[in-house]
């Protein structure tokens, strides 16, 4: 593993300044960053630990809740108010990764984690998303990949992103403290810019805000074994009065808002992923059933 410098600033401005240096990376729990560094996917020269910024509170805000960027998934999963009022968030936080990774991993880190594609994470291959020429998955083994064609067919991995998208959450960042819709945190990678995050250099997530509690919400996911598995697909549903919001991960590059009447719309499936259409349809139906009045 390459060596790097480590800093743990105490103020948001200091963190932003440190992160505006080239090859600097923000770190929450480090569970994704350090593994990428190990595998040579990242070559960060400095790591800026955001856990000294005091962004680790869960607090009621208006009719909703504000969740600090460095709240761990475990603490989010254990929060009684979240469990009662935002079931989908509790369920997604509790289902992600493994218990230890939930103790370490942070809310912002979970939202900003890289894709789990086995080509992206292959130490000996440099795929398109990593700046190379080839999406190895398209020509190779993409049994667990997405349902829509594109330059990259990897899938969004964050369970929390599905839940928060269904909850219509916003995200505060260091340079946009007024907040942006969660969907705007993400961007489709392009030939010019292979990042799937719409953050400026030095910018980092400081909090997630859910504006109001749904009348009902639920998270449905499928994994490859009974615990400790990234989601093959995950579907979050939230009902606000008679409005339904349905969001999915595991099926396309970015967390995706689905049409409750036609969850599969725009997701034709690829040669090896047609099975995921059946899965997505089933999970969506189940999630919707759980939130229906």
């Amino acid at each position: 593993m390459r060596t790097f410098a480590y800093a743990r600033p105490a103020r948001v401005e200091d963190a932003a300044a440190a992160l505006s240096q080239p090859a600097a990376r923000a770190m929450g729990g480090g569970t994704d960053l350090i593994t990428q560094q190990h595998r040579g996917i990242l070559a960060a020269e400095s790591v800026v630990d955001l856990r000294g910024l005091g962004l680790d509170a869960i607090a009621a805000e208006g009719e909703g809740v504000r969740i600090g960027a460095t709240v761990t998934l475990a603490d989010l999963g254990r929060d009684e108010a979240v469990r009662e009022r935002f079931a989908v968030l509790h369920q997604a936080a509790s289902a992600a990764a493994s218990p230890q990774l939930r103790e370490m991993g942070t809310v912002a880190g979970n939202l900003c984690q890289q894709v789990r594609c086995w080509y992206f994470r292959h130490p000996d291959l440099t795929c398109w998303l990593r700046g190379g020429d080839t999406c190895y998955a398209q020509v190779g083994d993409h049994r667990k990949h997405g349902l829509e064609p594109g330059d990259c067919i990897s899938v969004a991995p964050s369970d929390l992103a599905a839940a928060l998208l269904a909850l219509d959450a916003t995200v505060d960042t260091s340079s946009r403290p007024q907040g942006i819709p969660l969907a705007d945190l993400y961007r489709k990678a392009s030939d010019e810019n292979r990042s799937t995050l719409a953050l400026a250099p030095g910018e980092f997530v400081t909090a997630v805000v859910v504006p109001r509690a749904p009348d009902a919400s639920a998270y449905e996911r499928a994994g490859e074994r009974h615990a400790w598995s990234f989601a093959l697909a995950g579907v979050a549903a939230a009902r606000f009065g008679d409005q339904l919001r349905l969001a999915a991960i595991g099926v396309s590059n970015l967390p995706r808002l689905l049409d409750p009447a036609d969850p599969l719309a725009g997701l034709p499936g690829l040669e090896q992923t047609a099975w995921k259409r059946r899965l997505l349809s089933g999970l969506a139906g189940q999630a919707l059933a759980r939130v229906s009045g």
Partner: peptide, 13 residues
């Protein structure tokens, strides 16, 4: 008191 993975935890942290 939290169970964490020491292989991914930076000693510096």
């Amino acid at each position: 008191d939290r169970p964490v993975l020491s292989c991914l935890t930076l000693a510096a942290a």
